[in-house]
């Protein structure tokens, strides 16, 4: 159980949040223009790396806002938290 700092509500227990997979995968504006392969790439392909990963989390039992988290999947260390639409902080 880690602690996540919701960019709106502050530090909270992990149980208040739900994970939403990899961040910064933008839904194509014109899906019909894409080939099957391009669409499949958006739909299915995820990095799932061991190490520092960009993720989406939702403060499901709090303010219900979605936001981004930079987390090291090897030790659960959270390096940064930032709002949707913001650029990841430069390290």
């Amino acid at each position: 159980m880690f602690i996540i700092t919701c960019p709106f509500c502050g530090e909270r227990d992990q149980s208040e949040f739900s994970a939403g997979g990899e961040a910064h995968i933008v839904r194509p504006k014109q899906p019909t223009e894409l080939s099957d392969d391009e669409w499949a790439d958006f739909l299915f392909m995820r990095k799932n790396i061991k190490g520092v990963q960009f993720e989406r989390w939702n403060h499901a039992h709090g303010c219900r806002k979605w936001f981004n988290v930079i987390r090291d999947t090897s030790n659960d260390k959270i390096h940064a938290v930032y709002k949707m639409g913001e650029k990841p902080p430069v390290k």
Binding site: G20, R27, R64, K65, W66, M84, G85
Partner: peptide, 13 residues
Amino acid sequence: LSKLEDYLQTEWP
């Protein structure tokens, strides 16, 4: 509800 909020907040703000 969570899925709809997701689209509103992230894809179609």
